[in-house]
Design a protein around this nucleic acid. Structure first.
Lengths: 227, 227
DNA sequence: TAATATTTTTAGGCTAACCTAAATTATTTT
DNA sequence: AAAATAATTTAGGTTAGCCTAAAAATATTA
C-alpha cells in the first residue's frame, strides 16, 4: 500500500485498466502495442506485477492480465491525477485541449496527494476532464454516466457529445475546428452502409459534417437527456 | 543541447552550482554529503559528466568540479523551474512556504518549457521565490542583488530580510512564527562574542528576538536600502 | 488433422545509477 | 617528513527496465 510504484508500473496499470474496460483481459500483445514495449518485456513485467505483495495483477499465461483490487486502486489514482492535471492545465493555465496529454503523462507520476487535492479544490472538484473523460472520485470510484459511441446513434436522433476518446493533438485540433467538443448537441442524419461515414448536423453552428468511421468511433454521446 | 539530462544528472548540476557559488570547486565529499550518495559513486558521476559531449563539468582529480557553460545553463534551467514552481505553489495553490520544497524537487525535472512559461506569466514573472531566493531569468541569468548574512550586520544597523536559506520545514515554520520572512525590517541590537547569539528587534512587531548562530547564518539581508 | 501463423516464453544482454569493501594515491596538517 | 585526511580506483553487486533472437506453446486455417 506504500508508495513503491515506479513510473513504468503506473503506466502498465493505467494501460491494463483501459484495455480491460472492454471486459476481456489485457493481452501481452495489446500492452506491447499500447506501451511501445516489446512483448517479451511485457511478459516479464506482468509476471513481476503478479508476484508483488500484494499482487497488482491477476495473470495467467497466454491469457493476459486483469487488475486486482489493489492494482485497480493504483490505476485509478494515476488516472485521477492525469485527468485532474489535464483539467487544471486548461482551466487555470490556458492550455488548449490538444496540448495537455503529454504534460499530464509526465506530471501524473510525481504529484503529491496534497497537490492533487489542491488542484481538485481549485477547480471545484470537476467530474470530467477537457476531453470529457470522467475523473475518478477521491474515493477512487470511476463515475459512470450513460454514453454511447456515435455510430450507435439511430438516424434522426439527437444527442450531446460527452467524450472524445483520443489524445492525438492533430485530431483534437481538427475536431475543435469542426465544433465537435463535449457539450455540443448534434443529430445524426445519415449512416452510410458502405464506408460507415456518418452525416451529422450541429444545430448550434447550423452546419452539417461527414465523419469517417475512424473518427466517429472515438466520439461518445448521451441521448438520454432530451433537448 | 538536447534533453538528455537524467534526473540524477540534474541533481548533481544543481548541487555543483550551489556549492561552487562560494568560489571554490565542489568537492567529492561535499557532493556526497549534499546528495546522500557515497563518494565512490560521486567520483564516477563526475567523470561521466566531464566526459559528456559537450562536457557539463570541468573535473580534476582530487580537486573537485566546476560547471562548464553548458553545465551552468542546465543547472540554471533546473533552478528556475524549482523556484518558479515553489512560487506558484504558494501564490496560486495556497501552499505554505514550508511545504513547497519537496514538491518542487519532484516537479522541476518533468515540467515542459511551456509549463515554465505559463506559470511565470501567471505569476507576473517574479524575481524571487517564497524564501527570497532569486529566480534565474528566462535567459538563464541569475539576478544578483546585494545581500549579506545577518551576522555581518553592524550593531545598531537596520536592514531588510531578503532571503532565508533553508528548506527545513520545521525551521521555516519556526521563522515564520517569529516574523522572520522576506521583506521584514529588523535592526541588530547585540552580537554575543561568546556564543554568536544575535539580538534583533523587529519594529513592525515591536518584538525582540535572540537568534542562535546556526539560524542567523541562514538569514540574508539588504541594508543598502534605507528606511 | 495437419500446416501455418501468431503469441508467449526463455535465455542472455544492456544501460543507468547506485552500493560495499579494500587498496592506492593525493593533499593537507602537524 | 610523517601522519592524517580526502579522494580515487578496482572489483564485484544490486535493481529497474528495457532489448534481441530463438524456442515453445497456442490458435487459426486449409
Amino acid at each position: 500500500m506504500s508508495k513503491v510504484l515506479t513510473e513504468a508500473i503506473e503506466n502498465y496499470l493505467k494501460a491494463i485498466y483501459e484495455l480491460t474496460s472492454a471486459g476481456r483481459p489485457a493481452t501481452t500483445s495489446s500492452l506491447s502495442e499500447r506501451l511501445n514495449i516489446k512483448p517479451a518485456s511485457v511478459t516479464g513485467m506482468l509476471q513481476h506485477l503478479a508476484g508483488l505483495q500484494p499482487p497488482l495483477v491477476e495473470y495467467s499465461k497466454h491469457r493476459g492480465a486483469t487488475l486486482t483490487p489493489a492494482g485497480e486502486r493504483a490505476a485509478l489514482e494515476v488516472i485521477r491525477h492525469h485527468r485532474l492535471i489535464e483539467t487544471y492545465l486548461v482551466e487555470a493555465l490556458g492550455y488548449s485541449w490538444d496540448e495537455v496529454h503529454e504534460e499530464a503523462c509526465r506530471l501524473e507520476h510525481v504529484i503529491s496527494e496534497a497537490f492533487e487535492q489542491r488542484i481538485a479544490a481549485a477547480l471545484g472538484h470537476p467530474k470530467r476532464d477537457p476531453h470529457g473523460d470522467p475523473i475518478p472520485t477521491i474515493e477512487l470510484v470511476m463515475p459512470a454516466e450513460p454514453e454511447f459511441p456515435l455510430p450507435d446513434v439511430e438516424i434522426g436522433a439527437s444527442a450531446v457529445v460527452r467524450r472524445v476518446k483520443t489524445s492525438n493533438p492533430a485530431l483534437l485540433r481538427h475536431l475543435k475546428g469542426l465544433g465537435i467538443v463535449p457539450g455540443v448537441r448534434l443529430s445524426v442524419q445519415a449512416h452510410s452502409e458502405f464506408d460507415g461515414n456518418l452525416t451529422v448536423f450541429l444545430p448550434e453552428r447550423n452546419t452539417t459534417l461527414v465523419l469517417g468511421e475512424a473518427i466517429s468511433e472515438l466520439i461518445f454521446v448521451d441521448f438520454t437527456e432530451k433537448e
